[in-house]
Every structure is written in C-alpha cells, then in structure tokens.
Amino acid sequence: MTATIERGSATAPVNTPAAKKTPTRKKPGGFLTSSNGKKVVMAVTGAVMVGFLVLHMLGNLKIFFGRDSFNDYAHALRTLLEPIAPYRSVLTILEIGLVLAVVLHMWAAISLSYRAGKARPVKYVAKKSQANGYTTHIMRWGGLTIVFFVIWHLLDLTFGVVNPKGFDSAPADRMIAGFDPSRWWVTLLYLVAVVMVGLHLRHGIWSAFQTLGWANRDRNKVLRATAGLISIVLVVGFLAPPLAITFGVVK
C-alpha cells in the first residue's frame, strides 16, 4: 500500500516551504570564489604571461644580431632604471609579478578543475567529443606539461644547472651551447614544448576574450584570428633561435 502524506489544511496558509523545492541559495562568497571570477583571474593572469612571452621572444631574437647584442640585452634587463633603482631590482619586481600571475593562474585552474570534477562524480562509460575536443586536454594536461618544461627551461638557460656552460657563463654562450647540434634532443624537447604553449595560447587567448565578455557574433572571427595569430607569431619567434643554432645558422 502506498503512504499518505497530508499537505496543509485549506484554511491555514499553505506555503510552508517544502525544503527540497526552495532554491538552495548559498550565500555567494564574493567574486573570486565564483566560477566566473576564477575565469577572470585566469584571463587576466594569462594576459600578463602573454605580455611576458612577447617581450621574452623579442629578446631571444637578439641572438640573430650576434652574441653581444643578446648579452647586452640580458644585461640591460638587469640594469633597468639604474642608477635610480639598484641592480636587478626592476627585473626582480617584474619576476615577482610574473610568478604571482603563474601561481594565480594555476590556483584558478586547479580550483576550476576541482569544481568540474565535483560536478561530474559519475563518469560516462562512453564519451565522444563533438567540438574541438583537444582543448580541455591541451589546457589541463598541456598546462601541466608547460610547468615541467618551464622548470627544465629555468634550470637550463637561467640557472645553467643542466647547461654545459654552467651558471657563470654569458647568456648567449649558454643559449648557443644549450642548443648545440650535439644536444639535438634538447631542441626537440623545446620544439614540442613551444608547440604545446602555442596550442595552449590559441585556445587560452580566445577564451580570455570570451571570459572578459568581448566576444560576440560580429567580433568572433576577428578574435579567433587574433588568438591564432599571436600564438603562431610566438611559436615561430621562440623556435627560430634554437633551430637556427642547432642547424648551425647561428654560431
């Protein structure tokens, strides 16, 4: 037999809210805890990093003007605003800003990814992507790959730990030695990583436009093309020096 439940008498007000039906309005914890807020953090920190990459790439290209040009550039970075500011102070501030952007970017990514995991506790037995399905993989796994690459990259060319020339050498020497034809596998690693970065940016830059609410029907094509163009320029710009060194164009 089925159970009877009685819901309200005719004369008493009926709208004693049935708990399960009323909106579960959790007090919103502010902009940064909202999923949209975190996306904005990703977009803004991403933009900072793209800015850094553009400058970094322009610096790298100095190698084509000779070792001295490259070394001078590296030196100039450390002596920015000297003598008003002490040696390496501006660069350190910029580096701190960059590290902050990286940390925030990763924080937002991790917490969004955690949120996504919670939103789908039971996985599909079969799942097939209908859009450009690589994006999620390229963003999360790609992002992780980039982290590992950056660590290697810093050890190699910034701190010289894994570089044949060591830390006390001139930057240009480290770079040229690092991509020496005998170390072709480093170039290959670099190539794979930069392409990864490029793919990450192609989606990431457009995604930032979308997150910041700039995309719309009319602008979409232009924004997608802009994202693609920036990514391609960066990939080409970053790959040109190591390939040139490995193939002996720059010595």
Binding site: T24, K26, S35, N36, A119, A131, N132, S207, Q210
Partner: peptide, 13 residues
C-alpha cells in the same frame, strides 16, 4: 554556482 555546476572553459562542447 551554488547548484554545483562546473565552470566554463569555453570548449564549445
């Protein structure tokens, strides 16, 4: 958000 949906990563799925 408070319903527990995930955030958008613009995948277009």
């Amino acid at each position: 958000d408070s319903e527990g949906f995930g955030g958008c990563t613009n995948t277009g799925e």
